[in-house]
Design a protein around this nucleic acid. Structure first.
Lengths: 158, 158
DNA sequence: TATTGTTATACTCTATAACTATA
DNA sequence: TATAGTTATAGAGTATAACAATA
């Protein structure tokens, strides 16, 4: 639940009373707080490319094969379909993605990255990865793998 | 970065192309998606108590000893101080927390749960825990502990 | 009749700046 | 001079409903 966009960061430590409180072993809270830190670090870093975590996610997904439809993007990124419209609009105006009509289903638009979009996605991925490391830099590679595997099960449960 | 309040849920599974995309091993994205699922499940469940994840977090923190100041709440929950004002206002109007002037520093308000607040926090904690289990129910206790320990390091790094 | 994408709109959340009272 | 809390406000993010085109 927390989110705050402070680039010049909050002291991440907390009063002992609070870390030991009910919330201290609340998985949802830890998830929320970890996400908030990661999100603000990511947004700050991606600003160099004129992207945010959201738009980067759409761009990165548009590099997949086969390219996703807007509906698939909405489901995968957990965005409202109307939000996807506006994110794709912005990326399309910058020439980073294209809407390509699906010949199978003419209601659907595949969102596919242009060459410029793919290049930017690669750069932004590097940027994002470096920002991530600042957040979880003290996890060793094994721990990182473990964490990702467990998170993946939460993120794509059922 | 994703958040969407769909109670009647999205199919959590995703096109293989997307799970295998750049985002598939992006820790920030997994964190964001796992958090989004957990948050919407939490909000939906806590609605029974007229709480959301945010207000529940404030209430739960107000049960800690020593009771946190608003500034400490803001840092711990990663909320803006002005948001804390409004959340505390709401809880105070419902008689669930009180602002108690700190005799040491008369600028500061400790936010402390009332008896009713503590009772509700206990109920809500049960509710939240049950909702959590729906999200990460397929993790065994060991995996859950591991996940929490790793997340705690991200959430309170440095 | 249901679904994809779209638009418009209302609402919630978040960030910023200015102010007060204390320190 | 700096910090805790407050207020007001603007901006970003999110949800809802209605519609056209297609299935």
């Amino acid at each position: 639940m927390p989110t705050r966009d402070d680039t010049a960061a909050t002291p991440a430590s907390a009063p002992a009373g609070l870390t030991a409180s009910i919330l201290g072993d609340d998985l949802s809270f830890l998830l929320a707080r970890a996400n908030a830190l990661s999100l603000s670090a990511g947004n700050a870093a991606l600003a160099v490319h004129d992207l945010k975590a959201r738009s980067y996610a759409v761009l990165a997904a548009a590099c997949a094969t086969p390219p996703p439809s807007q509906r698939e993007l909405a489901d995968f990124l957990r965005l409202d379909p109307s939000q996807v419209v506006s994110l794709v609009d912005q990326l399309e105006q910058r020439g980073l993605v294209e809407r390509r009509a699906d010949p199978q289903d003419r209601r659907a638009n595949a969102v596919v990255a242009t060459a410029a979009g793919e290049a930017l996605a690669r750069d932004a991925q590097q940027t994002a990865r470096r920002a991530e490391e600042a957040v979880h830099g003290d996890l060793d590679p094994d721990e990182r793998r473990t964490l990702m595997a467990l998170l993946r099960r939460l993120a794509f449960a059922s």
